[in-house]
Amino acid sequence: MFNYTFHWNQALKALPQMLDGALITLQIALLSMLIGVVCALALTGFRLSGNRVLSGFAATWVEIARNTPALFQIYMAHFGLGNFGIHLSPYTALLVGIAFNNAGYLAENFRGALKAIPDTQTRAGRSLGMTALQAFRFIVLPQMLRVAFLPTTNQMVWAILMTSLGVTVGMNTDLAGVTQELNARSFRTFEFFALAAVIYYIIAKAVTLAARAIASRMFRY
């Protein structure tokens, strides 16, 4: 059909290398999610604090993260920060870019989740003699996490897909980077990238299924 011979063997031989890359991909995605969740919680707190400066800062972060491309944010971390004399390696730039993006989207999710919990819950906690912190910690937070869990796992899948953007700033250790490097050596573009696509698909599905399993165990009641 095509005047082209597929060399799948070459791609399969490189599978161990690509799986190593997949581990780095997962590592970046997990780290960026951890940083993202912490930042998002802080941003949500800033927004609720009532302090003009803090909530303005949080709103700016969220709007920039949500209204510009993720690739632009990574470029900003990699090329833009160079103006201040900060030169990040591709790995760090990728991590910073994705974490920034994650934090913006997650902050919006957390805010929505907080809104979904009625004020009466906090008031009931307070009237039972809990302090404000206790009411937040034991009443609001568990319910909020339950509502925010699914969007957060979606964001995790997004983070995994976003790590592939690292290749545009010269990242060569994650799955996309390794694939690109193999491709540059052999020009078997289709075979290598098809295999990479399969690996990405499996990772994304595994994360989704694992999240569902965790959710059904954690949120039984």
Binding site: Y4, L161, T189, F190, Y200, Y201, A204, K205
Partner: peptide, 17 residues
Amino acid sequence: SVPLLIQLVLANAFQSI
């Protein structure tokens, strides 16, 4: 479930194949 970048590269390789 597959990164857009990979999809673009694959499609480009496919159209040339």
